Simulated scan of single mutants.
Amino acid sequence: MENTETKKKSFNELINDDTPVLVDFYADWCAPCRMMPPILHELKSAMGDKLNIIKIDTERNPDVAIKYQVRGIPNLILFHKGQLLWQQAGVVRMPQLQQIIEEKLAQ
């Protein structure tokens, strides 16, 4: 999912970037969270370089989860140039997810 360039940047650098970022907050013990990777791979294939996707383990990064009020997981947050454009808890299917992202970026 992440390319090497993405790994070198901090979370704040990534979400303030010109490229929109979809953040998937998850935990290893969360069964619904395991449904997201194939959906996110399909989304990345469809959107390519127009979207970066990163995964944040809420167990290892509780401060980030608290900052963005992640109460349920999986929890998806779309950022663009530091702005939180959209947030939703639960599994979102690929066609719906792509549509939401494209609509939010067009606003």
Rank of each mutant, 00 (worst) to 15 (best):
D28R: 13
I15W: 08
L78V: 07
G90M: 08
A106N: 14
W86G: 01
L51D: 00
Q99I: 01
I39F: 05
T4I: 14
L14V: 07
R71F: 12
N61W: 06
E2W: 08
N16M: 04
T19W: 07
F11G: 04
N12T: 12
P20W: 05
E5Q: 15
C30Y: 05
L51N: 00
K9M: 14
P20K: 05
R34Q: 13
Q99K: 14
W29A: 03
N16R: 10
F25C: 09
V64K: 12
I39T: 07
Q96T: 11
E42W: 03
A31N: 08
L85K: 13
P20F: 06
Q87S: 14
E2F: 05
L22G: 01
G82I: 06
N52I: 01
T6I: 15
L51E: 00
P38T: 03
L78N: 01
M35V: 08
C33A: 04
W86R: 08
G48P: 00
L40W: 04
K50V: 01
Q96C: 01
V91R: 03
L22E: 00
L14G: 09
C33Q: 02
M47E: 01
H41F: 07
G90F: 06
M1I: 09
P32A: 06
A27H: 11
E102M: 13
Q69K: 15
F11L: 10
L14I: 12
K55N: 09
I77W: 01
L14D: 07
G90H: 08
L105E: 04
K104S: 08
L85W: 05
A65H: 08
P62R: 13
A27Y: 11
K67E: 14
R71M: 15
D57M: 02
R71K: 14
K50M: 00
I56N: 00
A65W: 10
C30L: 07
L14R: 12
L97M: 08
F25L: 12
Q98R: 12
V64T: 15
F11V: 10
W86Q: 08
A46S: 12
Q69R: 14
F79S: 00
I73F: 11
T6S: 14
H41G: 03
I73G: 03
I39C: 05
I39Q: 07
K104C: 06
Q88L: 11
P74K: 06
V92S: 01
K55I: 02
I54G: 00
L43W: 07
Q88Y: 00
M1A: 08
R34K: 15
E103Q: 15
S10P: 09
A46V: 01
N16L: 08
D24P: 08
R71D: 06
G48N: 03
N61K: 13
L40M: 10
K8L: 13
M35P: 00
D17W: 11
K8T: 13
M94N: 04
T58F: 00
S10A: 09
D17Y: 12
C33W: 01
F11H: 09
E13L: 10
I53V: 14
I73Y: 04
T19V: 15
R60K: 15
K9E: 03
Q83M: 12
Q69H: 11
R71N: 13
V70D: 02
N12R: 14
A46G: 05
L85M: 13
I101M: 09
Q88R: 13
E59K: 14
D17M: 11
V64S: 07
L78Q: 03
P32G: 07
N61R: 13
A89N: 03
K55Y: 02
